[in-house]
């Protein structure tokens, strides 16, 4: 008989550990009456406004919570109050339906993948113009300063050699329709970086002595490397990488964070892999930029392949066997893949 169920259970007064075996009854008007099961005296009598139902969860009784802090818990864990709204039962219903669980198994990874791979990079690209130039200046200057203090030493290249590099740089800057304006090229000796080049978000580009020496007789290859670095600045990759990594860290922290740390290890490696994946995508973008601009400057894309080949022999980089697994850990795409990209552009 709905509306006047008599439910046996346990009653606790507010902030009291004393247990009373009790019977609860809710009248059709919503008035709650709880009487002791042993001596039939009334333990509690409350209007509909002064009590509410606890959360509905599988395998657990739905308690009645009173405004003064008292609680009534039905003995039967499976009992559901007829007065419970369907909204209150909604979550538990979804959590126990095969169909919704199956939908969650299929949709959760798909949506996550879509968010990480498409939505967040898109958002990052859209958000980057909102970042003021002064912030990018800050980012560039501070990083540059700390690198100068630690791993960069003054260049030991001869003056004519330096001038040659600067000439290629100036030529590229003048002939290309670039969006950013404060490009500056610096030469440094660095045992830490070896033959390498990198760009900072404020347009600072650093090339190491070793790289200049390595590409000494291939000026176009050096130009290709410079263009690749300009590509990073034009694409505002530093800011985007920060935005995307932050997004990914937040998504995983909120969805999977576990105070007990059982999943932290798995997630830790996961986000490191993601960061590398973001970085690889941006390297590819910068490669594409370099190849296009080489063409625009009337140079052959093979210059890019030359630079990569030279770097490959210098660093003794990845070979066939290891590549399959290690490529997920690397911040750069496989060098062979990059050379192939460049040679493909040749035949286009």
């Amino acid at each position: 008989m709905p509306g006047s169920h008599r439910v046996t259970g346990q009653f606790h007064q507010a902030a009291s550990s004393t247990l009373y075996a009790a019977v609860a009854e809710i009248s059709p008007t919503g008035r709650l009456n709880i009487i002791s099961a042993t001596d039939k005296r009334s333990l509690c009598n409350a209007a509909a406004d002064d009590y509410r139902f606890g959360t509905v969860l599988p395998g657990l009784a739905v308690e009645l919570q009173l405004r003064d802090g008292a609680v009534f818990v039905p003995d039967d864990a499976g009992f559901r109050w007829p007065q419970l709204s369907s909204k209150a039962k909604m979550a538990a219903w979804l959590e126990s339906q095969k169909l919704s669980i199956l939908a969650a198994i299929v949709l959760s990874p798909l949506l996550l993948w879509w968010i990480i791979v498409y939505a967040m990079p898109m958002l990052a690209v859209a958000a980057v113009p909102l970042v003021p130039d002064s912030v990018k200046q800050q980012m560039g200057q501070q990083t540059f300063y700390s690198l100068q203090k630690t791993v960069l030493q003054p260049t030991e290249l001869a003056a004519p050699e330096q001038a040659a590099v600067q000439y290629h740089w100036q030529m590229a800057l003048q002939q290309l329709p670039l969006q950013q304006s404060n490009y500056k090229l610096y030469l440094y000796k660095s045992d830490f970086f070896g033959a390498n080049a990198f760009a900072l978000p404020d347009g600072t580009v650093v090339v190491t002595d070793d790289l200049v020496k390595l590409l000494h007789d291939k000026p176009d290859a050096l130009l290709a490397v410079l263009l690749h670095e300009i590509g990073h600045v034009e694409g505002q990759h530093s800011v985007r990488l920060v935005a995307q990594s932050l997004g990914a860290a937040l998504v995983f922290g909120i969805l999977f964070g576990d105070p007990e740390g059982i999943a932290d290890l798995v997630l830790g490696s996961g986000s490191a892999l993601l960061q590398s994946a973001f970085s690889r995508d941006m390297e590819r973008e910068a490669d594409q930029f370099a190849l296009q601009q080489l063409k625009a400057l009337g140079k052959s894309p093979s210059a890019f392949a030359d630079a990569m080949t030279a770097l490959l022999s210098e660093h003794g980089d990845s070979d066939d066997a290891s590549a399959s697994l290690l490529k997920y850990l690397s911040s750069h795409p496989d060098t062979r893949e990059r050379i192939e990209q460049a040679t493909q552009q040749l035949t286009d």
């Binding site: 979550a91 969650a104 198994i105």
Partner: peptide, 16 residues
């Protein structure tokens, strides 16, 4: 089994 349903559905709802 019960908690799998809770976790899975809550994960989807959290993403959405």
């Amino acid at each position: 089994g019960e908690f799998f349903g809770i976790w899975m559905v809550n994960l989807l709802l959290s993403i959405v």
